[in-house]
Design a protein around this nucleic acid. Sequence first.
DNA 1: TATTGTTATACTCTATAACTATA
DNA 2: TATAGTTATAGAGTATAACAATA
Lengths: 175, 175
Amino acid sequence: MVDNCVPAALSVDDARIRRQVRKRAGAMPHPGAQGAELGRLAGHLGYLVRRAQVWIFQDFIRTLAEVDLRPAQYSVLIVIEANPGLSQTALSQTLGIERARLVHLLDGLEARKFVQRYRSKKDRRSHTLSLTAQGRRALVRVKALADDHEQRLAQRVGARSYKTLLRLLAVFAYG
Amino acid sequence: MVDNCVPAALSVDDARIRRQVRKRAGAMPHPGAQGAELGRLAGHLGYLVRRAQVWIFQDFIRTLAEVDLRPAQYSVLIVIEANPGLSQTALSQTLGIERARLVHLLDGLEARKFVQRYRSKKDRRSHTLSLTAQGRRALVRVKALADDHEQRLAQRVGARSYKTLLRLLAVFAYG
DNA sequence: TATTGTTATACTCTATAACTATA
DNA sequence: TATAGTTATAGAGTATAACAATA
């Protein structure tokens, strides 16, 4: 996907860095179409949605960098919180993440003591997922940061447009 | 938003929007949220935009599979067509693709005789890009397929919502 | 026989550094 | 010294297949 937010300072290729820093000074994320014409791309909803997603995720990633959480990890924590006792398969279907990938995501969150896996008593093949006390505690700060991000977003597109977008895009999230 | 989005109220909104949306068209790709609650994810524009992007790209990729073109390749062809003589750096900035990655994309399109790289006479470091006759010919079919996809998309979200989305999302594509 | 979680592999895309040839 | 294109590598993320334990 589209991740970026490495304020790199370790490069030896100084020219490149200065250019990047210069860009960053002006506006924050904006992948912005520079110069050339987009042609019919500007009429493709997929293209605009993609650019929006990149823009939004860059801001989100930067915002949650201080708690070392990436979008997928955040979404996992939120859905487990909202559905305690959920199984891994159910979680993967809810978020549209592959079962195989979810295993690694959970490994990381479990190692950080944010999440617990228990063997289900009803079906010993499956795990019931839950947040630890530490996970719930961490989530307080995490949510506050996510709210900051969301407010910045609403401000960027305007309150009215923001609400309209939430409503219209929901058609894709619920099959 | 989010400032007017109480977490507790979110799941309520979530449930209402869900019911509302489910009445609509039969889903084709549908990453669909199965069973479990999304919690506050449903109030994150980034989450909805991401789901929309996945949905749309799945349909686009399937549609253009018969011409063996992926979204990034398509966007490169379209922008070169709209800006003959463009340099690789300008193209990469326009599309938000890394220069390094663009090299490989162009390698593939050049091998298929869709695109030509010429040394610029003004600046012998840079390449001027253009479509070949074969590339232009191929684009006729490619565009027709892309239009099919776009029409399907408009139908799915509804003509009015579709236009609104195009207009509102443009804020992210341009500075 | 089917499903859950898991491991492994391959491929796409992103991010970064460093090289070359020009400027 | 800086820039355009290139090469190389590491890391996310996605898509599959296969396996052990359990149903």
